[in-house]
């Protein structure tokens, strides 16, 4: 009995999860006369376990694409599949990390991390053990009892990443997660993320407009054009892993960086409003009925 179980377990282990299939994807944002296509006829395949960075100018629709992958935005046409299954609505299988943390201020760090397990109905003792384990993995032992407000920006993002990874998602979707951090913290977070990714392997789709960050992190770099977003470059990055900060001063790195800069410069300097994975940035609503 034992060998067969072992074998079937092996075969399960060998099928990597998190393959993304995007065909002719169009996403429309806004309503009525203000509606526009944020993403248009996008085709892309991402292999399971890959670390993919999407680079593009502000407002090009890269966050919109991420929002659709997470299930927060509905595509108008085309299809979007993860491991062959159509994406419909948010799921713990597709974890999302925003630029600014979305930790619940009313839950301690530990309870925030354990939230996904609670939603699955796992008992308190078990989910606290799991939360403490993953908290150690992101280097925050001893912070379990704190409120999110008591942590620094970098720590909050670590907790956010831990809270998503505790669900062992197929996809880790990140929308400029280190964009609001200072330069030094950002470098530390990039190395930490790569370190975690070697231990908890998932497909990562990482949106950024920082060329250095994209080149440093990714196996594959997709460059998107200005609105409506299309993919205008698809680069494989074969820098050996584990990567260290010395990489960013290498010759090949500089060459690729110049190439990306030129690609982005070709996109004329139209300044578009920033989009986010939930659609359009909140606008000032008209005063409601007598409130």
């Amino acid at each position: 009995m034992a060998p067969t179980t072992g074998k079937s377990l092996m075969s399960v282990m060998q099928i990597p999860e998190g393959r993304i299939d995007i065909r002719q994807l169009s996403i429309v944002l806004g309503e009525g006369p203000h509606a526009f296509e944020a993403v248009q006829g996008l085709d892309c395949q991402i292999e399971a376990g890959q670390f993919v960075c999407i680079l593009g100018p502000s407002g090009c629709g890269k966050s919109t694409l991420l929002g659709a992958l997470a299930g927060h935005l509905q595509p108008r046409s085309g299809h979007l599949k993860v491991d062959g299954a159509q994406v419909s609505g948010p799921s713990p299988q597709r974890g999302m990390v925003f630029q600014h943390h979305t930790l619940f201020p009313w839950r301690t760090v530990r309870d925030n991390i354990a939230f996904g397990l609670k939603m699955r109905g796992i008992g308190k003792a078990e989910r606290h053990t799991a939360a403490d384990e993953i908290l150690a993995l992101v280097g925050l032992e001893g912070f379990a009892e704190r409120w999110p407000d008591q942590l620094s920006g970098g720590m909050q993002q670590r907790v956010e990443i831990a809270r998503v990874l505790i669900n062992r998602p197929r996809l880790l979707l990140m929308d400029e997660p280190f964009g609001a951090l200072d330069a030094l913290t950002r470098l530390n977070m990039q190395e930490l993320l790569l370190d975690i990714w070697t231990r908890i392997r998932t497909t990562v789709v990482f949106v950024t407009h920082d060329i250095d960050e994209a080149l440093f992190l990714a196996d594959r770099l997709l460059v998107m054009s200005s609105r409506p977003g299309r993919i205008i470059e698809d680069l494989r990055l074969d820098f050996p892993r584990p990567r260290t900060t010395e990489l960013v001063t290498s010759h090949e790195f500089s060459r690729l960086k110049r190439h990306c800069l030129e690609l982005l410069r070709h996109e004329d300097g139209r300044q578009l409003p920033r989009l986010n994975p939930l659609g359009l940035p909140p606008e000032n609503k008209l005063p409601r009925f007598a409130l």
Binding site: A70, G71, H72, G89, P90, S91, P92, R94, G95, M96, F98, H100, T102, F104, W106, F115, G116, M119, R120, R163, V164, N167, P277, L278, P282
Partner: peptide, 28 residues
């Protein structure tokens, strides 16, 4: 914050859980 609601959905929260775990404490 609608992002908190979106995050809760992405972490597997249903309608009831969103009301009890996010909306009520957020509005408290």
């Amino acid at each position: 914050d609608p992002r908190l609601i979106a995050s809760a959905k992405s972490l597997g929260a249903g309608r009831r859980a969103i009301l009890l775990e996010v909306i009520l404490p957020g509005a408290a």
